[in-house]
Design a protein around this nucleic acid. Structure first.
Length: 487
RNA sequence: GGUCUCGUGGCCGAGCGGCUAGGCACCGGUCUGCAAAACCGUAUACUCCGGUUCGAAUCCGGACGAGACCUCCA
C-alpha cells in the first residue's frame, strides 16, 4: 500500500470499521455478487456496481494488486414468496418464447454495454454459473460428506440444524434461527425440507425446466447460493479478503454462502464483508416489484418518465458518488441537476488547472490537499469527502488563476497529475466529451466574430439579436474577459 | 408481528463528543453596454422529550416518523 494512511473498512461481519490487512501482502481478492440476467439491470442495480467499481479503483490507487471477481447469475433456482422454488430465468424465457440462454445472452450484451457507458472497469473475471456446474456439484458433495446436507428425492438441502451444532448460522445477519422460525410463514405441505431454515443446494428438475444438468442426484439445477461459493473458491480460494454485494443480499444469500463455505471448507469465505446500500425513489427502494425503477440507459437517453431531461452517465455516476456507499441515496431530478452543476464546476476547474502559469514559489502546500483526498479514500472509501476535497482544490485553482495563490512549475505538474488521478482513475469520471461538430464550430467562430465587431461598434441591437437568435437555437453565449465561448 | 437501520438548513448529502463538510438553490458582491456565464462572499441545520458529560447533531433511554430484511431482489 502506497498511502501514508491506514485503510479502514466497515466490516458487516463485526459492524465496525476495521483496519484492512490483506491475507497476502499487497494483494487483494474481492468477490462481488453480480446481476441475475433475467431482465435488464435497473439503476438501483447499477448503483451497487458503481460503488464497488469505485472501491476497486480505490484499492488499485492505493497500490494493491486486486483480483476482482464479479459473477453473472445465468442459472439456478430461487425460492419465491410461497416457499416454492422458481426458475426466474426460465420463466422469463418462456414468456418471451425463447431459450433460457437466449435470455441470458441478450441481457448480458446489454449489461456489458452499460458497463462501458457508466465507465466501470472490467472485473478481473466475470464467471457465469452455467460454466461452473461441475464445481458447484463438487462443493455440494463436500458439504454432504461433512454431514451438513442431505438428499431427498433428487434434491439436496443444507442441514441448518446440524450445522448449528458446530457453527453460528446468523453470523452475518445477526438472525437467530428460533426467532426466524416464529417469523416464517407456514411452509407448504409438499416441502421436503427437514427443517424450515434448510435451503436447497441442488433442486430436482421440473418437467418444464429449460435448463437441466446431470448430477449424482439426478437431473436438476443448482440452488441460488451455491454458485458464489463454487466460483469464489475456484478463483479466489477458500478464503479471500473482501466479499461485497447489495445490502438486500445480506440475508439469506450471504448468510447461506457463509454456511456453505464453512460447511465445505470450514471457514468463512471472506474476512471483510461489505454491503452497498440501496438507491431510493421517493424514499423507497428502487425495485422491479415496486415498479419505481428506470433503466440506466433511459436516464442517459432522456426516455425515463421520471425525469424531464436526460443526464450524461458521468453525471449520474458523479451524483451517486456524492453519497457514501453505506447510505441510502434518494434520486430526484432536483438532486441530479445540482450534481450536474457541481460536475461541470469540477471539470472546468480541471481544465483550468492545465492552463495555469507557474510561479517561482509556491504559496500553499499541494500535499495537504492531496492528503485530505487520500484520507477520505482510506476512511472506508468515503467518496463524498473525497469529492469535497476536490472542490476545495478547485477553489485553489481559481485562486491561482486570479493571482492570489502561486505554485511552482513542479508543484503545478504534481497538482495536475494528482487531480486527474483522483477524478479519472479513482472516481472514474471522464471529462464530458464535447462532440464538436467541425462545420458548426467553423460557423460559430464566424458568428462570434461578427457579434464581436458589432459590440466594438456599440451596435447592441445587432449583437443582442445574434445572442438571442442563438439562444433560440439552443446555443448559449458566454462572454468573459478572454473572449466569447459557446455551448 | 420479529430483527435491524435511519431521521442534518429550500434540495441532495458528509460528519458521529468540543474545530466552516461539500455540491445545488437563495441573497450580496466582482466582472459586463445590458444580460447570461464565471468567480468571490454571507446566511440558514442537526424530529421531539428526558439522561450522561465541563461540553452532544454526535453517547444512553423513550416518543413520533421513515425505510430495509424476514419472500426474488444490487
Amino acid at each position: 500500500m502506497k498511502s501514508d494512511h491506514q485503510l479502514v473498512i466497515y466490516n458487516s461481519l463485526s459492524g465496525k470499521k476495521e483496519n484492512f490487512v490483506p491475507l497476502h501482502e499487497d494483494h487483494v481478492g474481492m468477490y462481488v455478487c453480480g446481476p441475475t440476467l433475467y431482465s435488464e439491470p435497473h439503476m438501483g442495480n447499477m448503483r451497487t456496481f458503481i460503488n464497488f467499481d469505485f472501491i476497486y479503483r480505490c484499492l488499485l490507487y492505493l497500490g494493491y494488486k486486486v483480483k476482482y471477481v464479479r459473477n453473472i447469475t445465468d442459472a439456478g433456482h430461487i425460492t419465491n414468496s410461497a416457499g416454492q422454488e422458481v426458475d426466474s430465468i426460465g420463466s422469463a424465457a418462456r414468456s418471451a418464447q425463447v431459450q433460457s440462454l437466449e435470455i441470458v445472452y441478450t441481457y448480458n450484451v446489454k449489461f456489458q454495454e452499460l458497463q462501458r457507458v457508466y465507465n466501470l472497469l472490467p472485473p478481473s473475471i466475470e464467471p457465469t454459473a452455467t460454466a461452473h456446474i461441475q464445481e458447484q456439484i463438487e462443493v455440494i458433495e463436500q458439504i454432504i460428506e461433512n454431514g451438513f446436507a442431505y438428499v431427498v428425492n433428487g434434491s439436496v438441502y443444507f442441514d441448518v440444524k446440524t450445522y448449528m451444532q458446530q457453527h453460528n448460522y446468523g453470523a452475518l445477519s445477526g438472525r437467530k434461527v428460533d426467532e426466524l422460525e416464529q417469523e416464517t410463514r407456514t411452509l407448504n405441505a409438499q416441502d421436503e425440507k427437514r427443517f424450515f431454515a434448510d435451503f436447497a443446494l441442488w433442486k430436482k428438475a421440473n418437467p418444464e425446466d429449460m435448463q437441466v444438468w446431470r448430477s449424482p442426484w439426478g437431473n436438476g439445477n443448482p440452488g441460488w447460493h451455491i454458485e458464489c461459493t463454487a466460483m469464489s473458491t475456484k478463483y479466489l480460494g477458500k478464503q479471500f479478503d473482501i466479499h461485497g454485494g447489495g445490502l438486500d443480499l445480506k440475508f439469506p444469500h450471504h448468510e447461506d454462502e457463509i454456511a456453505q463455505n464453512c460447511g465445505s471448507f470450514g471457514c468463512n469465505p471472506a474476512r471483510y464483508w461489505m454491503h452497498a446500500n440501496m438507491l431510493n425513489v421517493n424514499g423507497q427502494k428502487m425495485s422491479k416489484s415496486f415498479g419505481n425503477y428506470f433503466l440506466p440507459k433511459e436516464i442517459v437517453d432522456g426516455t425515463s418518465n421520471l425525469f424531464t431531461k436526460s443526464f450524461p452517465a458521468a453525471v449520474v455516476r458523479f451524483f451517486m458518488l456524492q453519497a457514501h456507499y453505506r447510505s441510502t441515496l434518494d434520486i430526484t431530478e432536483e438532486a441530479l441537476n445540482a450534481s450536474e452543476k457541481g460536475f461541470e464546476r469540477l471539470m472546468e476547474g480541471l481544465s483550468l488547472l492545465e492552463k495555469l502559469a507557474p510561479s517561482s514559489t509556491s504559496s500553499f502546500e499541494v500535499a495537504k490537499i492531496l492528503s485530505a483526498a487520500e484520507a477520505a479514500i482510506c476512511d472506508d472509501f468515503n467518496a463524498p469527502i473525497l469529492i469535497a476535497s476536490l472542490f476545495d482544490a478547485v477553489k485553489y485553482i481559481h485562486a491561482i488563476n486570479e493571482g492570489k495563490e502561486q505554485l511552482t512549475q513542479e508543484d503545478l505538474l504534481w497538482f495536475n497529475q494528482a487531480m486527474h488521478a483522483f477524478v479519472q482513475e479513482v472516481l472514474g469520471i471522464e471529462p464530458s466529451k464535447k462532440e464538436e461538430n467541425q462545420r458548426l464550430s467553423g460557423v460559430m467562430d464566424m458568428v462570434i466574430t461578427l457579434r464581436q465587431q458589432a459590440r466594438e461598434q456599440k451596435d447592441w441591437t445587432t449583437s443582442d439579436m445574434i445572442r438571442d437568435g442563438l439562444a433560440k437555437a439552443g446555443i448559449q453565449i458566454k462572454d468573459s474577459k478572454d473572449g466569447t465561448s459557446w455551448s
